[in-house]
Design a protein around this nucleic acid. Structure first.
Lengths: 347, 347
DNA sequence: CAAATTTGCCTTACCGGTTAATTTTAGTAC
DNA sequence: GTACTAAAATTAACCGGTAAGGCAAATTTG
C-alpha cells in the first residue's frame, strides 16, 4: 500500500552521477558545474522529485511542524485562533498539528506528550481549565522546547505570551452594564486560578468598585470545566436566578459559557434583557442575529493566532538563545446590542 | 535551539551493549535474553527514552499522519467533522495535519501538494467549491495514496466516500416547508457541479414536483464561492426579494449560506417567517436561540469525521489492495423551529 | 613544462532506528 | 577434548538526504 516516491538516487542513476552531486546541484552549490545543475534540475522536474521531509528532518534535527493544544475546536474563538495560526505557519512552511484537551488536565499532559513524541519544533498552548500543575510543560521548556502561550497563560514559565486584554474587556463590559442602569450584576466565569478568569474577574471588580456598587460575592460563579458541561452552567444559573434577590444582569466570561447561558435562559423562560440582561465574551458571528442580539466582548482571535505563531517561529529560528520575552495584550472590543439595552428604555 | 533527545545509542552506551540489541529488546524480540530486556526497559524508562518518529518513519516508509483538506475551520460543520477525525486518528496513533482551501481551487491544489510533500499516509478531503478538475488528486490516487472523500465528493475517483444524506435532507426539508403552507420556495445553494449542490437541489426538486408545485428556475440561486463572500449571497437575496413575485420561503444549502442569509435578512429588514420563512443546512448549536429560532437540516458532522477517518485508516493499514469501495450516507435530521412556522399560525 | 591552484565530482560518514546476516558464547553430547 | 547446536549478541546495511573531505582532471602560474 505504499506510494513510492522519486528519490535523489533515481536522479543520480538516471544521469550517471552520484547522489551527493544531485543533492548539491539541487541546492545550487558552487561545487557543481552549471551544466550538471541544469541537467539535475531538468530531471528533477521531469520525474517530479520531492525531497523526503522525514529524511531531511532526521538529518537536520527539526520537523517543521508546530504543535497546538487547545480545549476544543468546536468553538468560534479557538477556530478563529487556529485559522490565524495556520495562515502564518503555512506561509513559513510549517505545518500545524492540533490536539484538544476538552478542558482535562490528563488529556493536556498526554497530548503534550504525544506531540513531543511526534517531534514538533515548538508548542502553542492555551492551558486547560483543570491545569494547576505545570511540570509537564516546565520539563519540556527546560529541555529547550520553544513554547508560546496564548489565551490562557501562566506566570510560572518565562516565554512569550499573547492574550486578549481581558482585564480591560471585562472592565469596559461591566461599565457598559452599569451605564445601562444595571446594578445587580452577576459574573459567571471559568475555573479559578486560570489566567483569563482572574483578569476578567479583576476587571469586573474594578468597574463595580469604581462605581461604588457593592459586589455580592454570591454573584460570582465558577465553572470548573469552563462550561464544557452544561450542568455546571445550569447549576450556576439556578443558584443565581431562583433566589429572592436575583441579579438583573449577567456578565459571562467565555464563548462557551456565554452561548450556553443564552440557551439556558431561553429554556428557563427568562426574557432578555427584561428579566435579566446578558453580556459576555464570545466570538460568534451570529451575535447580531441571536434572540435578542447579544452584547459581547469580542477578542481578536485570528490576530492572536497569528501573533502567537509569529513569536513561536521567531523563537524556533532564532540563532541565539532568547532571554527577553514579551507578553502581548491585544485589544478587545465591547459591542453593545439588545441583550443589555439600557434599563430606562425597556422598563 | 534544539532540544536534544535520548536515543537508542545512549541506552546502549549506558548498558554496554549494542544499539541493535536495545532496539530488539524494546520490541520484545525472542533473540534477546530476559535479563537484557529487563535492563533495557528499566534504562529506557529511567532516561525517558522516546523513539524518534522521523527515524522510524524514514525506515518504515510511513509517517503516521493524515492530511485533512477542508474549506475553512471557522464553520460549525467542519469544526465538528475535524473533531470527529481527530478523535479517531488520535486513538489509532495518527496525527492530523489540517489545511484550508477557503473555497479556492488553486489553494486546494497547493495544499494537497504541500501535504503530500510532507509525507502523509492518507488524505481526507472535502472538495472546494471551485474545483472542477481533479487531476491533482487522480495522480496521487493512481500513485497509491489512500484518499477518502467526505462531504463534497466526486464520482471521478473510485474510493471510499462519506456524505450526509443530502438528498433526503433536502427532500424532507422542502416537504416540511410545503406542509407548513409555503409554495413559493427559493433555494440558495453553492456552486453547481459540486456533489452536495446537486444532491440537495435534486431533493428540493423532487419534493416540489411530487407536490405539483411548479418550480420557478429564477428561484434557484448559486453562490460560486459557497457563501464565503457575503456579496454573492447579498446579490442572490436582492434578486430574489426585490421583485414583485418574491418567494415566501428560502431553503439554504450550507452552513455559511444559512447563517449569512439570516444576518442579511435581518439587515434588510425582513421579518422571519412573516415576510419570508427560512430553513437551511447548518450545524450551529445556536439554532434554538437565534432570532427567530432557526429551522435547520442538521448533519452528523462528528460521525462523518469519525467514519471517514476509520475508512481511511482501514485503507492505509490494509494488507491487500482494496478493490471494493463504500459510499456511506449518514442520516440528516430536519428540525423545525420558528423560522419556518406554519403559514396558518402566523398569517 | 612542472608546480600550484581551481574546478567538478565522488566517497564516506552521519542522522536514529530496524533487521538480515553473521559471529560469539554457552550448553550438551559423545 | 572435539563436535554440534541453540541462544544471545554483534555487525552491517538500509531508509533518503546532507555535507565534510578527498581526489582526479583542467586550468593557471612561475
Amino acid at each position: 500500500m505504499n506510494f513510492e516516491a522519486v528519490t535523489i538516487k533515481d536522479i543520480a542513476r538516471e544521469l550517471g552521477i552520484s547522489a551527493s552531486a544531485v543533492s548539491k546541484a539541487l541546492k545550487d552549490s558552487y561545487e557543481i558545474s552549471e551544466k550538471t545543475k541544469k541537467a539535475v534540475l531538468e530531471c528533477a522536474k521531469r520525474l517530479n522529485y520531492r525531497p523526503n521531509p522525514m529524511a531531511q528532518s532526521l538529518k537536520r534535527g527539526n520537523s517543521k511542524s508546530l504543535g497546538i493544544v487547545i480545549s476544543t475546536i468546536d468553538n468560534n474563538f479557538f477556530a478563529q485562533v487556529i485559522n490565524g495560526m495556520e495562515s502564518v505557519a503555512y506561509s513559513k512552511n510549517y505545518n500545524v498539528i492540533m490536539t484538544q484537551t476538552h478542558e482535562s488536565y490528563d488529556l493536556e499532559v498526554s497530548n503534550v506528550q504525544h506531540l513531543t513524541i511526534r517531534a514538533i519544533d515548538g508548542l502553542l498552548i492555551s492551558l486547560s481549565n483543570e491545569t494547576r500543575d505545570l511540570d509537564h510543560l516546565k520539563k519540556l521548556h527546560d529541555k529547550g522546547l520553544p513554547i508560546v502561550f496564548f489565551d490562557r497563560v501562566t506566570d510560572e514559565i518565562e516565554t512569550h505570551k499573547v492574550i486578549a486584554d481581558n482585564f480591560k474587556g471585562a472592565y469596559e463590559a461591566t461599565n457598559s452594564l452599569i451605564n445601562a442602569g444595571y446594578r445587580k450584576i452577576a459574573h459567571i466565569t471559568s475555573s479559578p486560578h486560570v489566567s483569563i478568569t482572574d483578569d476578567r474577574l479583576n476587571g469586573f471588580r474594578l468597574a463595580m468598585s469604581e462605581n461604588n456598587i457593592p459586589l455580592n460575592e454570591q454573584f460570582v460563579k465558577y465553572c470548573l470545566h469552563g462550561g464544557r458541561d452544561l450542568n455546571e452552567i445550569e447549576k450556576a444559573l439556578t443558584e443565581l436566578l431562583c433566589s429572592p434577590d436575583r441579579p438583573d444582569a449577567l456578565f459571562t466570561a467565555s464563548d462557551r459559557i456565554t452561548t450556553t447561558t443564552l440557551s439556558l435562559l431561553h429554556k428557563m423562560g427568562f426574557k432578555i434583557p427584561d428579566d435579566i440582561a446578558l453580556l459576555g465574551f464570545t466570538n460568534t458571528s451570529l451575535a447580531d442575529v441571536l434572540n435578542p442580539s447579544l452584547s459581547s466582548v469580542y477578542q481578536p482571535a485570528f490576530e492572536m493566532g497569528k501573533k502567537a505563531t509569529e513569536m513561536l517561529i521567531g523563537l524556533i529560528e532564532s540563532k541565539r538563545p532568547v532571554r527577553e520575552f514579551e507578553k502581548v495584550a491585544l485589544p478587545t472590543e465591547v459591542i453593545i446590542r439588545d441583550s443589555s439595552k439600557p434599563v430606562l428604555v425597556h422598563k
